[in-house]
Write a protein that binds this DNA or RNA. Structure first.
Lengths: 197, 197
DNA sequence: ACGGTACCAGACAGATCTGTCTACGATCGG
DNA sequence: CCGATCGTAGACAGATCTGTCTGGTACCGT
């Protein structure tokens, strides 16, 4: 198969319709409860077309998560560019997280939600989730290093805890009660004295 | 139906076998992927017996979560009793969380995992999850109030974020790297100056 | 004009799943 | 001894699900 063929296939409007529909349904209702039949019906696509673009449902799940990863990378890059410095970028990342979590369509983190449906850590979907989380943690770490934090490694892991807590809590508890605490939480972790250890 | 009948039914060994098996399988593999047929086969119980004790699968899921809630209540009470004061109790709760997360069978929080499989917030299973989270948050709040913290309300919500971050991270990232950071994270949140707000 | 590719429509196999049902044995209080 | 209850074993209906396959249409580069 030629490179142009692969390229054309990746840009196919049918493929885009499948991926858009899957993104909407997977995020709103979960992966396993949403069947292929439903996706192709709502995308207006034939079954053969679906299996032409995606060899199996799991590959569609992976593509859904990869696309989400791409969107988050772009959003993070925009926030970083609009911020005065690394510390402001970090804090606006958390503000953004709190705002997203208070939106009406928020249903938690697509990655952790998907991971909950794939118990096997060796599964390709789980590896995709792991890749996203690695990127997220490294983003925190690099911004911390950029603003001269004495412990970027450990603090990035603790910021990751805060991040997970915001997305889980915004989904399962009251997101409006959580939102005003988001920046406070990040600042507490950022400005706390690092233990001697 | 008499009160004794209900009591006998609740203590039935067949019911206990069903619940134990369901607990093991639901936690390890998720709720939807584990079918009734598999549960009754591994529990050594007839199908009619299952539907005699549980009107539907969702009720079994609820019972599984309620039982887990009970175990966590007992564990928290033990830790509280063994601690010198509320602050020590709080910190040992987090230590306990980190240790559990590093165990070989750890698969994340049973409640958030179950919630990820039930998108509808009005579903009985989701209400059960919400009840557990309310209890957990109030436990934090009361311990904070007990050790004279100036902002038990907001800080309990931030500790809840840390809690969620520990269970998610222990499942999806490297639990052994996370464990030494757990107490540090809790202390940073506990001892940070409360913003003027 | 022709071959390759993309696409639609839908039947189909084979394997799930939940929940109901029949039929029968064991135990135990009254 | 009798009726209620608890239990086992398993067939069954009805609705899923994934992935394959057939058949036909349309475009596009050569």
């Amino acid at each position: 198969m030629s490179a142009e063929t692969l390229e054309r296939r990746r840009e196919s409007p049918a493929r885009a319709r499948i991926l858009d529909t899957a993104t909407r349904l997977f995020y709103a209702e979960g992966v396993h409860p949403v069947g292929i039949d439903r996706i192709i019906a709502e995308a207006g696509v034939a079954k053969a077309t679906f299996y032409h673009h995606f060899p199996a449902k799991d590959e569609l799940v992976r593509a859904y998560l990869e696309a989400e990863h791409g969107r988050q990378r772009a959003a993070a890059e925009m926030l970083r560019a609009a911020s005065a410095g690394p510390r402001e970028a970090l804090l606006s990342l958390f503000d953004h997280l709190g705002e997203t979590g208070a939106g009406p369509m928020f249903r938690g983190c697509p990655f952790t939600n998907a991971a909950a449906e794939y118990p096997d850590p060796a599964h390709p979907v789980r590896r995709t989730v792991a890749g996203y989380r690695r990127w997220s943690r490294e983003l925190f770490r690099d911004l911390l290093a950029g603003c001269g934090h004495p412990d970027p490694e450990g603090t990035s892991a603790i910021l990751m805890m805060i991040r997970d807590g915001i997305v889980v809590g915004s989904d399962l508890d009251d997101p409006d009660a959580l939102r005003p605490l988001v920046r406070d939480a990040a600042v507490r972790v950022l400005d706390a004295p690092v233990p001697p250890a």
